[in-house]
Write a protein that binds this DNA or RNA. Structure first.
Lengths: 359, 359
DNA sequence: TCAGCGACTGTGACCGTTGACACTGCACCG
DNA sequence: CGGTGCAGTGTCAACGGTCACAGTCGCTGA
């Protein structure tokens, strides 16, 4: 037996015929234009429902020039941050009647292909670029695209964007550690950005600014690079820090992922957190709560939401897309991984019994 | 100054004119059909490049009936599993020349809207349903869609699907704990599936089967329901287990997320893992490694990849989509959270000094 | 009473691409 | 030398909507 005939799906004309009106009227009705009488509207809607009609975006976009779709360019899909950002984006786009087209571009090969072919071109009304480190050529290529761009979680001069103020946030985080009495505060930054384009330097700058503000000398030994996801270099970095003449009492990790691994390493070598070492992360990773990690929490979902709204606006007013910015706040979420600085033990040659704790 | 004119993008006809050929020839060239002479091909390709031409999928899909797009229905976007599955899907779809349209349907409202409007209809060549618990009405509605369906990480009778054998995997996991000498093995299952549609019962069944196989009596006190993501019920469940006359020496958690929270709770109450309690998870969550959690690892990425390939095949041969299945293996990844069962302490009334350990 | 207006609906061209078909040469065969 | 086949190319009618414009009709105001 041959399978049942696959319905090709009804067309506007089918609905029109069934409702006894012209295709135009059906079109008007379904788009919610007001110039349709209530009775007609009712009849059309019923006919549409009976045929379980769905509009063909291909056809309508052909004539309107709008696709009803938004393309999203991301460096991967399995990181916590992008998941959260997309999770915020999806319902917001949905509410605006936009579908979400995802281009996940990870490898060099995919990258070359994406920027060569520009598959998003003419197939979406706007392109959202999320945490995607672009070369100058790539940026230029996106400009060629002739469609509105919105940058998410990255700041591009003169472009529409939604992001957080990394400098200020890192500064605030560092100040928090200072307020806990820490004076030796290390900073761990990822050696590779692994395709991500957050303003890495920005966070480090914030850290430095806060230290300077407090009148504390920069000590380059306290700033260490570690591989972001894997690799032994984290252990090495911890070893270096713990073997300094004056080791840190707190570590500010540029990302929560680093902080998690750091917690594991410290547990392994029996350095109690936060008694001997306070750890502060950055990101607001979903796992920060179960890990009891203090962190500077980015509003990842809200970034996605705001980006979707901005995209919507920019699509309807393409002229405005050059100068729109949304800066969202980062919240310090103090948890169990940070605590007051330990009272320093007397050190040989210090000359005093117990060094006084500075106010 | 008015901004520069936004290029609308060249059309096939523009390219044709520039290359001095007909639109058909351009179309043929760009699609790589062989009936074009090398010289013409070269000329057309150059013209296309010069105009940085990109085909309009709207127009071509209007006539071919193919959209070159695949819709993916997911219950959320910020879970580890879906991120990984999508991460596997994206490049595979890409390689097949398909774009990925994501419908994230989480709330009841979104759900109602999605199944009422069926926005995917006629706007994609296939629908991938990933870990999405469907009501019978919803399933029927999807059938109405008249487009190939592929179920991912869920098993639907008689439908194309990619999934793992949960029963067998859970059975194997339980056997592993038995082999470590555990006889009292608890099982924690999520109270709500939170929209996820893995075969929850299946895993529990596997657990039961393994116990039966080993000739161990089922003890309903050892099977407890806990909230999946949050909530105090996990603590309560642990309390129950620890206060049994004969408490378990191992816990099999139905998901890694539960296992993580379990580890935190046990650390909080000073039950050493794995010395006093072995913990085995299920999922292969990205965080399992840093947490040193033993787990039954699902190949999430590969599920996505396989789904993409299946989608591709099913699109090109719609008749075949009813009976295609791909079953992927689950790997036991033993780590530090599981260890040999502790030697039981003599219990009052036992009559023996040290109870012998069974072989 | 009738022009004029507004609310509603129909008509037909057109969006950009594909595919069936027709056409043109040229090589080959009988 | 004419017919045949084939490679390469052009023509033209779809595909399924939308939009500008042109009715139609009943009502209002002069």
């Amino acid at each position: 037996m041959a399978g049942e005939v696959v319905e090709k799906g009804a067309t506007l004309a089918d609905v029109a015929q069934r409702a006894g009106v012209s295709p135009s009227t059906v079109s008007r009705t379904l788009r919610g234009l007001s110039t349709v009488s209530p009775e007609t509207r009712a009849r059309v809607e019923e006919a549409a429902r009976e045929l379980s009609f769905a509009i063909s975006r291909s056809a309508s976009s052909l004539v309107t020039g709008r696709t009803g779709r938004v393309a999203v360019l991301v460096p991967n899909l399995d990181s916590w941050f992008l998941g959260a950002a997309l999770a915020g984006m999806a319902p917001a786009l949905n509410a605006a009647g936009l579908d979400m087209l995802i281009y996940s571009v990870t490898t060099a090969e995919q990258r070359a292909q994406f920027f060569d072919r520009l598959p998003a071109r003419r197939n979406a009304d706007a392109l959202l670029v999320v945490s995607f480190a672009l070369s100058p050529e790539e940026r230029a290529r996106l400009d060629d695209l002739g469609m509105p761009l919105v940058f998410v979680s990255q700041h591009e001069q003169g472009r529409a964007g939604v992001y957080v103020d990394d400098v200020e946030a890192a500064q605030r985080g560092t100040r928090y550690l200072l307020n806990l009495g820490h004076r030796r505060i290390a900073y761990l930054e990822p050696a590779d950005a692994s395709g991500f384009a957050w303003s890495s330097r920005a966070r480090l700058d914030g850290y430095r600014t806060a230290l300077a503000e407090a009148g504390i000398d920069q000590d380059d030994d306290l700033v260490r690079q570690v591989a972001h996801w894997q690799g032994p270099s984290l252990e090495a970095a911890v070893g270096r820090l713990l073997s300094l003449a004056e080791p840190p009492t707190a570590i500010f990790a540029e990302t929560d992922d680093i902080a998690f691994r750091l917690l594991t390493v410290l547990r392994g070598v029996n350095v109690p957190v936060p008694q001997r070492m306070s750890i502060l992360g950055f990101d607001g990773h979903a796992m920060a709560e179960p890990w009891d990690l203090s962190t500077m929490a980015q509003p990842a979902r809200r970034l996605g939401e705001a980006a979707a709204e901005l995209a919507h606006r920019v699509i309807h007013d393409p002229e405005a897309h050059r100068e729109r910015h949304v800066v969202l706040p980062v919240e310090l979420v103090p948890r169990g991984s940070t605590g007051p600085a330990p009272i320093p033990r007397p050190r040989p040659g210090d000359g005093e019994g117990v060094r006084e704790r500075r106010a």
